[in-house]
């Protein structure tokens, strides 16, 4: 009995210790994430427009029903999905190819792996500036290269029309996101034991068979993680839109992140902005869960 009492005392003191040690971190997170989140829910249930002060009132789910019956929600949602699917596809496919290359042993591999950190370290806003310059309709490098190669006869404004603006937005966004996906997939590849491949070669399996029957199945859980994370990131894209396209031309790249920004900080409608931000949060979480279930099921099979 006595030893049990001593155990409880010890456990309590450990609990208190844990509380004291983690208090600063928990307080910071609570003050800057939990409290604002609750307030965002509150705002989303109110009529709250800074242009019309004094008229704040509770309106229940009206903001939400307004959005759900408005093409100003469905159109950006569709654009968001187009962008996110494109970005995830480009990132995952390129990252997988690069990871397969870096998984081969050759002199210079370490340098290449380190240089992957160059695009990774570039902030999204600077990346947008970089691509704005590369794609400049009068002086951009890409225009110059295509022109010199004879692919185009006059310089193009690729950011000025659909579908080229979406394609280049996806490429520009993917450029800084590919390195991390590559490093994660590479670490996944390196856990696959080499002797499996050797015995497959003995059995006469070709390079594509080895990829399809060994690499892909064994990489599946890491691939799932990368897909889910990249999906979450891409659905909330904002920075690059702000600098590169500002939602244009003619709303062609108006994703939900941009709608939330203009609704809240230009039209100053904080109620409407909060509710659409909540919808984006729910959609993101829903997609993450959906992908998790689909991909996880695949792993079991």
């Amino acid at each position: 009995m006595q030893s049990k009492a001593a155990d409880t005392r010890k456990e309590m003191s450990q609990g208190r210790l844990a509380l004291i040690f983690s208090a600063p971190a928990v307080l910071i997170i609570a003050a800057t994430i939990l409290a604002p989140f609750l307030m965002a829910v509150f705002l989303s249930l109110h009529n709250w427009n800074l242009k019309r002060p004094g008229r704040e009132r509770f309106i229940g789910l009206e903001n939400y029903t307004d959005w759900l019956t408005d093409s100003d929600f469905w159109q950006p949602l569709q654009t968001t999905f187009t962008f996110a699917v494109g970005a995830v596809l480009v990132i995952v496919i390129v990252a997988l190819l690069v990871a397969l290359l870096l998984n081969e042993k050759f002199p210079g591999r370490g340098v290449l792996r380190a240089l992957l950190l160059v695009p990774w370290a570039i902030p999204s806003v600077v990346n947008a500036l970089l691509w704005k310059w590369l794609l400049n309709p009068q002086y951009g490098l890409f225009n110059a290269i295509w022109f010199e190669l004879g692919i185009i006869t006059e310089y193009q404004n690729v950011l000025g029309s659909m579908p080229s603006v979406m394609i280049w937005l996806v490429i520009a966004y993917s450029w800084i996101h590919i390195p991390l996906a590559t490093l994660l997939l590479l670490s996944g590849l390196q856990t696959i034991p080499g002797d499996i491949y050797e015995s497959a070669i003995v059995d006469g399996a070709g390079i594509f068979q080895r990829f399809a029957y060994i690499t892909l199945p064994m990489l599946r859980s890491m691939l799932s993680i990368v897909i889910i994370f990249e999906m979450i990131f891409a659905l909330k894209v904002f920075d690059i839109i702000f600098v590169l396209t500002a939602g244009g031309p003619a709303d062609a790249t108006n994703v939900l992140g941009w709608t939330i920004y203009t609704e809240t900080f230009r039209k100053l409608d904080f109620g409407a902005g909060s509710s659409i931000a909540m919808l984006l949060g729910v959609i993101t979480l829903g997609m993450a869960i959906l992908f998790y279930v689909i991909l996880d099921k695949g792993v079991e099979q």
Partner: peptide, 12 residues
């Protein structure tokens, strides 16, 4: 806490 989109926190 990281699952909450920054845009929804930015408003409040």
């Amino acid at each position: 806490s990281r699952l909450i989109p920054a845009l929804s926190l930015a408003i409040p």
